[in-house]
Simulated assay, not measured.
Amino acid sequence: MAPVSGHPASVLAVVRRYEAAGFRAWPAAAVHYDGTWVVRLTAGLPAKRLNSVNPLDPGDTHAIEERIGRAARRFDAYGRPLTFRMSPLSGQVLSRHLDKGGWNRFDESLVMRLPLKDLELGAAMDQIPLKDISRFIGASLRTSGSDASLRPGLSEVIGAIQPEAGLFALEDGNEPLATLICVHDGDLAGLFEVATEKSARKQGHGRNLILSALKWARLRGAREAWLQVEAGNLPALSLYRSLGFEEVYRYHYRRPPGA
C-alpha cells in the first residue's frame, strides 16, 4: 500500500473519501462553501481541523485572492487566525500562490489506514463504549492534558457526530489511563482523540484500547480503520505502524505571514 505521490483522478478519489469521512466524524459548528473550498469554523474549540479552509478540487483556482479575503473576514469574525488545510486536493496552483505570498507551512500530518479483515482481534477486550458523554470528556481531558475550558466545545462537537460514535475509556478505578473515539461510518472506522495519560504511557494501554475499539467497529461491519496523526508524533507513529497502519497521504496547514 504505497503513499499517495501523484494526483491522478483515482488518487484524488481516495483522498476525497477520507476527507469526507473526516468532516462527518469531526464536525465543525459552522460550514460555508466558496466554490469547492470548505470553510470550517468552531467557536468552542480552537483545533485547526475545526477552524480551517479545506480546498477540495485542484482545478478550482479562480479568484484566489478575492476568496482568501472572504475567508479571512469569516475567520476574523470568529477570532480565529486564517488557516488553510492543504491536502492533495488543494493543488499546485493554490500552493504556489500561497508560496508567493510568504505563507507559513506547519504541522504536517499523515492519514493512515489499516484493513480489518486479517487483523487479529480475538484477544482484544470486549468493551462497551461509554454512553455518558460528560464522563468520557472528563477522562479525555485528563489523558490528553487539555484545559478544562475546552469541555463545552468538545461536548458540542461529540454530540454533533452523525455516524455512530463509540466513546472508549480504559480506567483504573476512577483514574483514566487511555481514551479514544471510534467513529463507525459504513465500512470505515475512524480513530480520533487517541490519548494515554502521561504517567501511564509505554504500558500498552493505548494499543489495547485501539484493538478493543476496532473489534467493536468490525463487529458492526467496518472493513477498514483510518486515522490522522501529526508527522512529529513519533511514539504514536511507531504504535500505529506496529499495528499495521500504512500512510495514504499527507496534509499540512498554512497561515499568512504574521498570523
Results as ranks from 00 to 15, higher is better:
1 M>Y: 00
2 A>M: 13
3 P>T: 05
4 V>C: 04
4 V>G: 03
6 G>E: 14
6 G>C: 14
7 H>C: 04
8 P>V: 07
9 A>N: 06
10 S>G: 03
12 L>A: 10
12 L>T: 08
13 A>M: 03
14 V>C: 06
17 R>E: 10
18 Y>M: 05
24 R>F: 08
25 A>D: 10
26 W>C: 03
27 P>K: 04
27 P>L: 11
28 A>R: 02
28 A>P: 03
29 A>Q: 14
30 A>R: 14
31 V>T: 15
32 H>Q: 12
33 Y>W: 07
34 D>Y: 12
35 G>D: 09
38 V>I: 12
38 V>T: 14
38 V>F: 01
39 V>G: 10
39 V>P: 10
42 T>S: 15
43 A>C: 03
43 A>S: 14
46 P>Y: 02
50 L>A: 04
50 L>Y: 05
51 N>I: 10
57 D>M: 07
57 D>K: 08
59 G>Y: 02
61 T>S: 13
62 H>I: 06
67 R>T: 11
68 I>Q: 01
70 R>W: 04
71 A>Q: 01
73 R>S: 15
78 Y>P: 02
80 R>M: 13
81 P>L: 12
85 R>K: 14
88 P>R: 05
88 P>S: 09
91 G>H: 01
95 S>M: 15
97 H>Q: 10
98 L>P: 02
100 K>R: 15
101 G>A: 07
103 W>E: 00
103 W>N: 01
105 R>K: 14
105 R>Q: 11
107 D>V: 08
107 D>Y: 10
109 S>V: 10
111 V>S: 06
112 M>Q: 05
115 P>T: 07
116 L>F: 07
116 L>T: 08
120 E>V: 14
120 E>T: 10
122 G>M: 01
124 A>P: 04
125 M>N: 13
126 D>G: 06
129 P>I: 07
131 K>S: 12
134 S>I: 05
137 I>D: 00
139 A>H: 14
143 T>P: 01
145 G>R: 10
147 D>K: 15
149 S>Y: 07
150 L>M: 14
156 E>R: 15
157 V>E: 00
160 A>Q: 10
161 I>M: 04
164 E>V: 10
165 A>D: 01
167 L>S: 05
168 F>P: 02
170 L>K: 09
170 L>Q: 12
174 N>L: 12
175 E>M: 11
175 E>D: 13
176 P>W: 04
176 P>N: 00
176 P>R: 02
183 V>N: 02
184 H>N: 11
186 G>P: 06
187 D>Y: 09
192 F>L: 11
197 E>P: 02
197 E>D: 06
199 S>V: 11
201 R>D: 03
203 Q>K: 15
205 H>A: 10
206 G>T: 02
207 R>W: 00
209 L>R: 01
210 I>S: 04
213 A>G: 13
213 A>D: 08
217 A>E: 03
219 L>N: 13
220 R>P: 05
222 A>T: 08
223 R>G: 15
224 E>T: 12
226 W>G: 00
229 V>S: 09
230 E>C: 08
234 L>H: 11
234 L>D: 08
235 P>A: 00
235 P>Y: 06
237 L>P: 07
239 L>T: 06
241 R>A: 13
245 F>R: 04
251 Y>N: 08
252 H>F: 15
253 Y>L: 05
253 Y>M: 05
255 R>W: 01
256 P>L: 03
258 G>F: 12
259 A>M: 13
259 A>C: 13
259 A>Y: 12
